[in-house]
Design a protein around this nucleic acid. Structure first.
Lengths: 240, 240
DNA sequence: CGCTTCTTTGAGTGCACTCAAATTGAGTGG
DNA sequence: CCACTCAATTTGAGTGCACTCAAAGAAGCG
């Protein structure tokens, strides 16, 4: 699944558990471990100067997080009860001294976070509330391997989703109700839903926060047509 | 200045130049070099699915960028004419096989990007237009080593700033005019300004997108003990 | 069963948006 | 050097979306 995971098996590690809402590590804390999620959901977040929380991402089984040195950039908290595999950062770094591939994988892991939050920023900056919600729900369904009409569980609260998408819970609630009345969505109890018409929403996922996904050719074409400045810039490119 | 810079001197490198608005590297391109800015200004950016450009950061002399493998996450374009030092990624990776410290520095470099864009996201999601502009101008002044009343040059266009802050050029222009009439700002020609009252704006810079800055002590202390949910209600709103 | 937290719904408002057009400035070629 | 062109910026008018404030209902948890 993840190449990094194989490398990590060579490092000192053991299983750890956290209950929902426990802090796994905190911002600015010394970084001494890398984690891999066995079961459950984890969120990465920061607290802004104004005291507001910005959730940077939700992680699920198989995801690796905490590749960071020497201090934590974000906090990590358990959304649900979680089982994690904890790898000593010290021994991971020792391993990387012997393996160029592992070094590349570590950089890649750090870059993935950057990639995700960069596209996240682009979405928050330019998408309407409805688009953001649809993007999130579609991403979530995709992460859980669910297709059209299949039930997707929503392990986090609306407030979590709001702090992820930079929306208030009120707005979120209203958007969900409207999506439901428009037949884009059907809700199955409190913490579950199903997407009825993911067709156009799915396109959003093709590029963006997917793991290291390169922008698709179609996206590039569109962006070149829509943004003449960019087109011009690409054309005048010279090597030297 | 930057520890990474010293390590890089051991790698194969040479000087390169780009003219303003030339592409240094593009999204999804194979990554084969790390750069250090000698003079000028560079922007990192992505093009969203909708064709909109999101600028993730502006870089200046001394900054290192392009630590990325195996493919580029962002594009890098010259804002002004720039002189860069170009380091072969291949030889950097070879060096890192022999130096644990270099590996840590590479991870740190990748994490810095993540840190910056994470706080950027928090700002775009929760700040008003005026706050964002003030934050940006204060950051820019700080980067150029300019204090209150000193002239700061603005090497990029308002459109660039808008694509960075997720604001339209129109809004940006209006905000600048209001800041000027409120005596927070005085403009010195097209591409220059001076901040008159940076006092409260500077507080924003103390944490946030500054290199690896740790959150303020008060926030940190509390968030280590309690989980973050309890912090959310402590919202201190900055007055315009 | 009482408490807290989460969610929903309503009413009203303000900020940043879009659309449109004028003006300024920079760059280019005659 | 000057006219010309195009991009960048400014200004105005109007609007809609997501916000705040407020309060009621629903769900989890002891």
């Amino acid at each position: 699944m993840n190449d990094l995971a194989e490398f990590l098996e060579g490092a000192r590690h053991w299983r750890v558990r956290y209950h929902a809402r426990q802090v796994i590590f905190d911002e600015a804390e010394p970084s001494n471990a890398v984690f891999r999620i066995e079961t459950g959901c984890v969120r990465l977040q920061i607290i802004g100067e104004s005291g507001r929380r910005q959730i940077l991402g939700f992680l699920f089984a198989g995801d690796i997080f905490g590749v960071c040195a020497p201090e934590r950039i974000t906090a990590a908290e358990a959304v649900t009860d979680v089982e994690l595999m904890r790898y000593s950062l010290e021994s991971v770094l020792q391993l990387s001294s012997k393996s160029r591939e592992l070094t590349v994988e570590l950089i890649r892991a750090a870059n993935r976070l950057f990639n995700d939050v960069a596209h996240h920023l682009e979405h928050v900056g330019h998408m309407s509330a409805t688009e953001r919600v649809l993007w999130f729900l579609t991403w979530l369904a995709h992460r859980q391997g669910r297709g059209t009409g299949e039930t997707v569980s929503l392990p986090m609260t609306l407030r979590d989703v709001g702090d992820f998408l930079a929306l208030t819970p009120e707005t979120l609630s209203r958007v969900l109700r409207e999506l439901e009345s428009d037949r884009h969505l059907s809700r199955r109890g409190r913490g579950a839903f199903a997407i009825r018409q993911p067709s156009f929403a799915l396109r959003m996922l093709e590029s963006g926060s997917e793991p290291m996904a390169s922008p698709t050719a179609s996206v590039k074409t569109v962006s070149q047509n829509k943004n003449s400045e960019e087109l011009i810039h690409r054309q005048v490119r010279l090597d030297r």
